[in-house]
């Protein structure tokens, strides 16, 4: 039962990563693309956690934590860059 659940969950998360990729491609504006990339970071954490559950180790915990931190910092940095690069300010 656990194996089936992990399989279903992995498939769902992979489909949602493709949806995010689609939004990165068609995103009409830059904030849209940043939002899609940020969601992709979170989905990759979900994939790593699922892989950790499937192989029943906690080795991937640090990787997931690092990706979460990098995702937040990069999103904040890109937002700040786009904000300051604007002529309005």
């Amino acid at each position: 039962m656990l194996k089936t659940a992990i399989l279903i969950a992995t498939v769902l998360v992979c489909i949602s990563m493709f949806l995010n990729l689609w939004r990165v491609f068609i995103g009409p504006s830059r904030p849209d693309r940043i939002l899609a990339l940020d969601t992709m970071y979170i989905n990759s954490i979900a994939l790593i956690i699922l892989f950790g559950i499937a192989s029943s180790t906690t080795l991937y915990f640090e990787a997931a934590l690092l990706i979460a931190m990098l995702g937040f910092v990069s999103t904040a940095a890109m937002c700040k860059y786009i904000l300051r690069g604007d002529l309005i300010e």
Binding site: L2, A5, I6, V13, L19, L35
Partner: peptide
């Protein structure tokens, strides 16, 4: 319990990305 939690979590992640599109 673990299976239900895993599937529910994946469904929420999926719905979030669906909303994005």
């Amino acid at each position: 319990l673990i299976s239900v939690l895993i599937v529910a979590g994946a469904v929420f992640v999926f719905v979030g990305s669906l909303g994005l599109v």
